[in-house]
């Protein structure tokens, strides 16, 4: 079983904040289709907003804000800061609505603005602790423990280990990997958000994948041996 399969099998739970687990393969499962449809609906809503339909902004908010919040919370580990940056990002999108190109994708644009705001904020606050960790933040919803507490504990431990291994990666690799696997962006969209080429994103995410595969190889189940 390859690494993605292991994660799919063992990390099949949802985080309390609605995030999909790391490593849920962003390929051909239903959740990717949902994300693609949501992006497409958001693009259309943004286009209507650019044309002057003021009510469409509420739709844009509903479709874009949760994904942005998930991305920013993961990056900052500070829910208050992430929420503030989401608001700032959407306010910027509102101010620039007249320049929204028909047929353009709103999510990579929003993500790029959010990322820039985050970098700027971190630079300003450099040297200052970024606040409480995600786990310590009481405002975050706790994971849903209803189905099976044992599985959830195992999945939670697995997620923590994956997070730890991800944190060890160079930031360029980690970011490319997370944008594709966690935020379900296409290679082209991730390249646009990072301001680089598709080839560079492909290379970075592949290197991250190989590094994680090496680091987390013990999670793969032992191959079955035929008994004599």
């Amino acid at each position: 079983m390859d690494l993605a399969g292991v994660f799919e099998a063992r990390a099949d739970f949802r985080f309390g904040n609605g995030a999909r687990p790391y490593f849920a393969p962003a390929g051909r499962d239903k959740s990717v289709d949902v994300a693609a449809v949501a992006s497409s609906v958001a693009d259309l809503a943004m286009d209507r907003y650019a044309r002057g339909d003021d009510g469409a902004f509420s739709e844009v908010y509903d479709l874009v804000a949760p994904r942005l919040l998930r991305y920013l919370t993961r990056q900052t580990r500070n829910l208050a800061l992430a929420e503030d940056l989401v608001q700032q990002t959407l306010l910027r999108i509102h101010r620039a609505r007249g320049r929204f190109t028909p047929g353009a994708a709103v999510f990579p644009w929003a993500m790029a603005i959010a990322r820039r705001l985050l970098i700027d904020d971190l630079r300003y606050r450099r040297g200052d602790k970024l606040g409480r960790s995600l786990d310590e933040d009481p405002t975050l919803d706790p994971p849903d423990l209803a189905p099976n507490a044992t599985d959830l504990v195992a999945a939670s431990q697995l997620a923590a280990r994956i997070r730890a291994e991800l944190a060890k990666l160079p930031s360029a690799q980690r970011e490319a990997f997370e944008l594709i696997k966690e935020d379900e962006l296409s290679l082209a969209e991730a390249a646009a958000v990072l301001g680089t080429t598709v080839t560079a994103v492909k290379l970075r995410s592949h290197r991250a994948y190989v590094a994680l595969r090496l680091a987390l190889g013990d999670l793969a189940p032992e191959p079955k041996r035929d008994r004599p």
């Binding site: 044309r51 002057g52 902004f57 509420s58 804000a65 608001q87 509102h94 007249g98 320049r99 929204f100």
Partner: peptide, 21 residues
């Protein structure tokens, strides 16, 4: 949070595509 943002948006109208063009 959404209500706060929508209030801010209403208080600060932005140009539409036609205005920008």
């Amino acid at each position: 949070r959404k209500a706060q943002l929508l209030d801010a948006v209403r208080a600060e109208p932005s140009p539409t595509r036609a205005d920008v063009v």
